[in-house]
């Protein structure tokens, strides 16, 4: 997902993909490009009959709204049986900078932060 973007005076600027911690089948990383209904269908299948007790929905930056929407839609499709437990965090992202002005300049890197949300969608104990 590395994107190239040119900012005036700063040379080329490549975004490294976001770090992804090791994922289990119950971790869903929401992005803004995948079809929303496909993501929803996948989660429904995971939580469906005989499936998992818990999925964790992660959304970064612009995908936070989508992640919330996904979790709420899941809750609506299993009325009364699912609980949501959201938490927020900061994710550090790295950009690679390629300076214009020839070979002699060192390529640099810059760090920036972005916000993320993690929503635990689970069935309460004793069901």
């Amino acid at each position: 997902m590395a994107e190239q973007k040119s900012l005036p005076g700063r040379g080329l600027h490549t975004r490294r993909p976001a770090p992804r911690p090791p994922r289990s089948p119950s971790d869903i990383y929401v992005n803004t490009k995948t079809d929303f209904r496909a993501q929803l269908a996948r989660c429904r299948q995971l939580l469906g009959a005989g499936g998992l007790r818990e999925v964790r929905v992660h959304g970064l930056g612009l995908a936070i709204g989508r992640a919330i929407n996904l979790a709420l839609q899941l809750q609506l499709s299993h009325p009364g049986t699912l609980l949501l437990s959201p938490s927020t965090s900061t994710v550090e992202l790295t950009d690679d900078l390629e300076p214009e002005g020839g070979e002699d300049m060192e390529p640099g890197a810059r760090n920036r932060n972005n916000s993320a949300i993690h929503i635990r969608v689970y069935r309460p104990q004793g069901e």
């Binding site: 803004t32 929303f36 930056g61 612009l62 989508r66 929407n69 760090n111 916000s115």
Partner: peptide, 17 residues
């Protein structure tokens, strides 16, 4: 400014809104 999400205008078109 560092913490801000990248300025990107994307129209979300989700059927579930």
């Amino acid at each position: 400014s560092e913490h801000c999400a990248p300025k990107k205008k994307t129209e979300e078109s989700e059927g579930c809104y």
